[in-house]
């Protein structure tokens, strides 16, 4: 419901007239919700900016939050919400800070009991509701962006593919493998096989606490894909619990070589390459 031009004019005057009292009372109310997690001067600065934002929007003749005249106010609300999201406040706490404005205004209107004041107030609350919804929206979007960023960082720091020997590369997998990460790691492994021309790969899962069907499938698919490319994979570091799970889930590892440790796997691969690992004779010092 849009405000009438007269309504926004009257509201602008009202906000201007009571500016100081309004800001004080508003900051006080918000302070209660945020339970002292922001300092009073900081809160007052924020609410003063918001109050000015609303006042200017009304003075410019904004009738709806989506109007051109309210662009600056929208930017302000977005900024506030984004800051709060990053500081770890909840969406609720952020929206309530805006809703508190209604209560503050009610206090200013005092005992006036005429119909016009009531209409103004109702129109105003609708406007504030829109503003609060906007903060909510921004809040969710900022949080989602944060989560997406973190997920990406995790993927990046995930897994190096290292060269163990001429023609042998290894991926030491550490941490929980979800489907997305397993896929990234496996694609990287296959690419490294091509880049280095290594016919052998060792996938070491010592650092993986659990394997579910999907992850096991990813590993299996990688092994099959590597074979199609002309490389052999060995899986090492399968812990007892994981071996139990693999059998319980009915996952067939088929003829894929599995070894207890990375060392065993390396020895096995070297053996296939006609190397034999022996203890070197020590020379006297």
């Amino acid at each position: 419901m849009a405000l009438s031009p007269e309504e926004s004019g009257r509201l602008a005057d009202l906000l201007k007239e009571h500016a100081d009292g309004l800001v004080g009372r508003w900051a006080e109310l918000v302070g209660v919700t945020l339970q002292g997690r922001m300092t009073r001067p900081e809160l007052e600065r924020q609410t003063r900016e918001l109050q000015r934002g609303f006042q200017q929007a009304f003075a410019a003749g904004a009738r709806d939050l989506a109007d051109e005249e309210a662009a600056e106010l929208r930017a302000q609300l977005g900024e506030l919400s984004a800051t709060r999201a990053r500081q770890g406040f909840s969406a609720n706490e952020t929206a309530v800070s805006v809703f508190a404005f209604k209560q503050v205004l009610l206090g200013i209107l005092g005992d006036a009991a005429d119909v016009q004041t009531l209409r103004d107030y109702v129109a105003f609350t609708a406007f504030v509701d829109q503003a609060a919804l906007l903060t909510f929206d921004t809040f969710v979007r900022v949080r989602e962006a944060l989560i997406a960023d973190q997920a990406e960082q995790l993927l990046e720091l995930s897994t190096p593919v290292v060269k163990l020997w001429e023609g042998v590369v290894a991926v030491p997998l550490v941490g929980t493998l979800d489907s997305a990460r397993a896929q990234v790691v496996m694609e990287r492994l296959l690419q490294t096989l091509v880049d280095t021309g290594s016919p052998y790969a060792i996938i070491d899962i010592t650092g993986v606490p659990a394997v579910d069907t999907q992850v096991a499938q990813h590993i299996l698919k990688t092994v099959v894909a590597a074979r199609l490319m002309g490389a052999d994979c060995v899986i090492s570091g399968i812990r007892p619990q994981i071996a139990q799970t693999i059998v319980a889930l009915g996952i067939e590892f088929g003829d894929i070589a599995t070894k207890a440790s990375l060392a065993d796997a390396l020895r096995y691969v070297l053996g296939k390459n006609s190397y034999k690992v022996v203890v070197a004779k020590r020379t006297e010092r």
Binding site: L190, L193, S198, P199, K221, V224, A225, R227, L228, G230
Partner: peptide, 19 residues
């Protein structure tokens, strides 16, 4: 190489090498 696996194509009897 990832695709034939999903397609269900196992290419039995074909020997492969990286290069």
């Amino acid at each position: 190489a990832i695709t034939p696996v999903e397609l269900g194509l196992s290419l039995p009897g074909i020997r492969t090498a990286l290069n």
